[in-house]
Design a protein around this nucleic acid. Sequence first.
DNA 1: GTCCGTGCAAAACGTTTGCACGGAG
DNA 2: CTCCGTGCAAACGTTTTGCACGGAC
Lengths: 161, 161
Amino acid sequence: MILISIINLGEKMENKNFDSFIKSFTTYLKKAGLSNTIQKEAILKVLFEEAGHLNAEEIASIVKKKYKINIGIATVYRNLNFLENSNIVSAIVKDSSNTKSYEISIDGHHDHIICTKCGKVVEFFDEDIEKSQLEIAQSNGFTIESHNMTIYGICQECKGQ
Amino acid sequence: MILISIINLGEKMENKNFDSFIKSFTTYLKKAGLSNTIQKEAILKVLFEEAGHLNAEEIASIVKKKYKINIGIATVYRNLNFLENSNIVSAIVKDSSNTKSYEISIDGHHDHIICTKCGKVVEFFDEDIEKSQLEIAQSNGFTIESHNMTIYGICQECKGQ
DNA sequence: GTCCGTGCAAAACGTTTGCACGGAG
DNA sequence: CTCCGTGCAAACGTTTTGCACGGAC
């Protein structure tokens, strides 16, 4: 039941601006008996505005600089974990490092191509791959919860050099 | 050039027994100016025989118990990194923990479905997904180096409970 | 004798936890 | 007054690094 409202929140986020997103978010928190804070909002705003894939340290640093809010790294991790479990943000691991990078799920689900040279991340969504995954999981008796589809390679610019 | 011989080694490994595999491996090391050691062989043998997805600690522990070889965890990591870069072993991350598990690439490339409840790993290979990935990468100007396709879900047995 | 790979221990890294404080209801 | 979320610092688990030793050539 909680899961349903979480997923709905994720879906409702599409095509909205940040203010209305925060409104839904606060409502969601209240329903769960939790309260919104300036830190939670700042983390989300950074992910919303930077639109990149940021790790916890980067988020903390931007929050401090841009919004002059004192924020502890533990708070960032606590909130990112909460947001990830609520399907509001999603995490990817850029190869070679063991660091998780996060992005807001506002554009709906997509997968990633990452350049192993410059780190550039390109997003894509492929209906066929999604369908194949579902079939594979089903034929193996699995119910899909999530998946991670990341392609690593060299981008055009880096090939040119 | 180094990369080519590495990839060839990976391909040549299919359908061979461990002895001939080690022979190719030693040749590959010699070409690269490196030497084989009892530790390298033991790590590979464990991955070859156990056929599961083992993390560094597990590999070290099995090497010590089964082959009575003293091996330091640093050596295991050093060799696993080398083997991964040489495409001889590949790593997956079982969700929630941040630990890498390794498997030998002897059966050729495949992807994984992991049960988030019991940790069971099922391997699969899907021609259509592979093809789609190639097309997506190309249309974005990328040359694929590798990819990670992991589906997380609940397996039949865990659903039954 | 030189060099490379090792074991050990310490360090580094990303992340989580314990605790006391402060602000909201 | 209570409770929840926070900052800080310490702890944690995984992985990497520095160093000295020993064996292969």
